[in-house]
Simulated assay, not measured.
Amino acid sequence: MHEQFGRAIRREVTDRLLIINEHHLRAVLDRYSAHYNHRRPHRALQLLPPRPDQPIPEPGHISLRRRPVLGGLINEYEPIAA
């Protein structure tokens, strides 16, 4: 596991979430890794995700939709049509 990813998942998820069993842990890790790699902005990439799974919005796009992830523990934001 990448060291930075390990710190991020611990800080953002496992320190804040009660993990019930191994199945639950795997589901949480899978969902968070998808968020981390496809939606989460990374500073080293000028706030772009490493492997976006949707088109990147134009700068200055104002209308956003918030989507809770992992029961609202973290949020993802996506542009909406104006």
Rank of each mutant, 00 (worst) to 15 (best):
H35W: 12
L18M: 07
H61Y: 01
L17F: 06
A81L: 09
R7C: 05
A82D: 13
R39N: 06
P55F: 07
P57S: 10
R7T: 08
I20Y: 03
R10E: 14
A8K: 09
H24Y: 08
D53F: 09
P41H: 06
D53A: 15
Y36R: 11
H2F: 10
A44P: 02
N75W: 01
E12R: 12
V69Y: 05
E78G: 06
M1F: 09
L48M: 15
P55G: 02
L70N: 08
P50W: 11
L29K: 11
A44Q: 09
A27R: 11
H23P: 00
G60Q: 10
G6E: 12
Q54P: 00
F5Y: 15
L48S: 14
P52V: 10
E58R: 15
R31N: 09
G6Y: 01
Y36P: 08
P68I: 03
P49F: 09
Y32D: 02
M1E: 07
Y36E: 10
I56C: 05
P41E: 07
P79Q: 06
V28A: 10
V69C: 11
I74W: 05
I56Q: 01
A8M: 08
G60V: 11
E58F: 04
A34R: 13
R26T: 08
R31L: 07
R67H: 05
P68G: 01
L70V: 01
G71M: 03
I19F: 04
P57A: 14
I74C: 01
S63C: 08
E22Q: 12
H35A: 09
I80Y: 01
L45P: 07
L73Q: 05
Q4G: 03
L17N: 01
R16P: 00
A34G: 04
H24A: 07
A82S: 06
R26V: 04
H42L: 13
E76P: 01
N37H: 14
A44L: 12
S63V: 05
P55C: 10
A82W: 01
R10A: 07
G72C: 03
R10Y: 15
E58I: 07
R7W: 06
S33E: 15
L48P: 06
G71L: 00
Q46I: 03
N37V: 05
E78H: 07
E78V: 03
G60N: 10
H24L: 04
L70E: 09
V69R: 15
N75Q: 00
D15F: 08
E3Y: 12
L47D: 13
Y36W: 15
T14K: 01
R39V: 02
S63Y: 05
L29H: 09
R40D: 01
E76D: 10
E12H: 11
L25Y: 14
L18N: 10
L73P: 01
L25H: 08
N37Y: 10
H38A: 11
S33I: 09
N37G: 13
